[in-house]
Amino acid sequence: MADSLICIEHVSKAYRRDSLQIPVLADIDLTIDTGEFIALMGPSGSGKTTLLNLLAGIDTPTKGRITIDRRVISSMRETELARWRADHIGFIFQLYNLIPVLTAFENVELPLLLTRLSRQERQVHVRTALAIVGLSDRADHYPRQLSGGQEQRVAIARAIVADPVILVADEPTGDLDARSAGEILDLLNRLNTEHHKTIVMVTHDPRAAARAHRMLHLDKGVLSVEEPAAALDRSRDGR
């Protein structure tokens, strides 16, 4: 457990709505090793996104401890957590969430504004990230001038530009057609295998989950099933 990249210990999360306490996650234990590609599945409201938010450091657990790369992020103060996110986490959202007034280049450059890199150094990083996702020729395009698949690739370039250890993806293919979804999954696979990114992906799509090394099931806040993605693939094919 000590050598794991992500270590979640007895983590619970509950939200307050007025006087009501709504439990979302209950006593979760999970470890994820460096270079793993994890698919997190489960029905709506099962707590997948909440678990993703917790390990990405944009939410804090009600109970338990989250350690990432030997640092306990669950007890970090907000400012410290923001710095940590900028250095360690790349976000990929279902609806891409690009800034509409910025070009693809400027969108990808955003996380680098938080670094001490010079303008020239930032340009090199951005061009490299855009090249990895295959959009070097679309650097000056605005999000509205791109297809959904291209927007998601720009979002992935933004996620990897600061070279984070972990990529968290919340239904990255949820808003894409089958072909674009396949391209995005190929890209995630490549980032995992060639660039050694640890990926945690929330998805409803069994085909997307099949790309992962491990598939985790969440149901009513309980991490109840854990099985290899390949098993799902076999069951789908009836083998």
């Binding site: 990405a56 944009i58 907000e78 400012t79 923001a82 710095r83 996110r85 900028a86 250095d87 976000f91 959202f93 969430n97 800034i99 955003l110 996380p111 938080l114 933004r158």
Partner: peptide, 16 residues
Amino acid sequence: VTQIAVIRALGFRRSH
């Protein structure tokens, strides 16, 4: 609101 939440997720602090 979403744009602000996104840049905060990317690491921008409240002061930013």
